[in-house]
């Protein structure tokens, strides 16, 4: 409740500021709109972000509540060939649980993304900084208000680092009258990322392709060669495939990743998921997901998820889901979860 009040105050303050900014101008977008951020006059700066609160009731573990993400976006784009983007995340801002009173003891800061884009031409942009690892599609749009479930599939985060720091070349080209989006990157997290993510790369080289087959179907492929910051240091090769179909409000998507290593004691592993979304009405959606995941130190796991989502406005989503599986205790435990997320 305290958090909601805080947001109300922020929105009210931003709205008051925007009234001053609009003045008698032809440009009507200076007004704050939920889910679009706040443009700071004509500076090219835009401030926004998203917030998530979650309640989890794992079947074999204590319940917990947390304001799991409070992410702040800062974008600068004044129409020149350079633009800047950063996402500063305050994780576990407020948490409580069966054995823990409500407090901020788990709160931590992290730069999720921090990069400069230099536009070379219409097909090529050079990115320098920290960015989301382009493996599959989920990791690239993983923010809670943009996805249908409170939990993310194991295959979208378990076998690689979700962030990379270094240099990326990205853009799109036209192939057979359709857009082929590409990214090629080199990571040197060890040297340049002072706020290192969970399970970071030591170094990596990778590429991602995504092609629109039709207006409703996209396919993609990923490849990465990397060393994780882990013991023992091991070099891995990872390959991934993705497909997504959406028509009106129906969706079907799937991702598969396969990882091999040069270490004889680490077995090759593949993980995947398939997810469908079916609209029940304008605002209500039912979500089903099946996951299969091999685990380096356990038997292969499987999980089924059935969820319900209520989205009264595009930037706001309420979710409720139940997960049930086998050999899934470590990576995707059975249980109930509910969450609220909002882009602001």
């Amino acid at each position: 409740m305290r958090v909601l009040t805080f947001f109300n105050l922020v929105v009210a303050a931003l709205s008051m500021g925007s009234v001053l900014a609009v003045a008698a101008d032809d440009d009507v977008e200076s007004i704050y709109r939920l889910g679009s951020g706040y443009p700071v006059s004509e500076t090219g700066l835009r401030i926004g972000g998203y917030a998530t609160t979650k309640i989890g009731m794992p079947r074999a573990d204590p319940w917990y509540f947390d304001v799991s993400d409070l992410s702040l976006f800062l974008t600068w784009d004044n129409g020149s060939r350079l633009r800047f983007f950063s996402e500063l995340e305050v994780g576990d801002v407020l948490s409580a649980g069966e054995h823990q009173s409500l407090g901020t003891q788990k709160a931590h800061f992290e730069f999720e993304r921090f990069y400069i884009d230099g536009l070379v031409n219409n097909n090529l942009t050079i990115r320098l900084g920290k960015f989301l690892t382009p493996v599959g599609q989920w990791n690239l749009i993983h923010a809670a208000p943009l996805v249908w479930t409170s939990s993310r599939p194991v295959a979208t985060e378990n076998l690689f680092s979700t962030h990379a720091s270094g240099l990326m070349l990205h853009g799109s080209v036209s192939v057979a009258n359709r857009q082929l989006e590409y990214s090629v990157y080199g990571d040197i997290s060890e040297s340049i990322d002072p706020y290192r993510s969970k399970k970071p790369f030591e170094n990596a080289l990778g590429a991602h392709l995504r092609y629109s087959l039709t207006d409703t179907v996209q396919i993609g492929a990923s490849f990465a060669n990397f060393v994780l910051n882990d013991l023992p240091p091991t070099r891995y090769n990872l390959a991934g495939l993705e497909v997504a179909w959406s028509y009106q409000k129906y969706e079907l998507s799937s991702e598969i990743v396969y990882r091999t290593s040069d270490h004889t004691n680490i077995k090759s592993t593949w993980q995947s998921f398939v997810q469908s979304v079916i609209p029940l009405s304008q605002y209500w959606f039912v979500v089903g997901r099946y996951e299969f995941f091999e685990q380096p130190q356990d038997k292969p796991g499987q999980v089924g998820l059935l969820g319900l989502a209520y989205r009264p406005l595009p930037p706001i989503i309420w979710k409720l889901e139940y997960r049930l599986g086998t050999n899934n205790e470590t990576l995707a435990a059975d249980g109930l979860a509910a969450s609220f997320a909002m882009l602001f």
Partner: peptide
Amino acid sequence: EDYWSVQYFNGISPPKVMASEEAILRF
């Protein structure tokens, strides 16, 4: 709107909105 939410997450803003056709002509 779903498309623009994803773009917003990636730091891309939608086209600028102007109040009238005359405003567009001037700009």
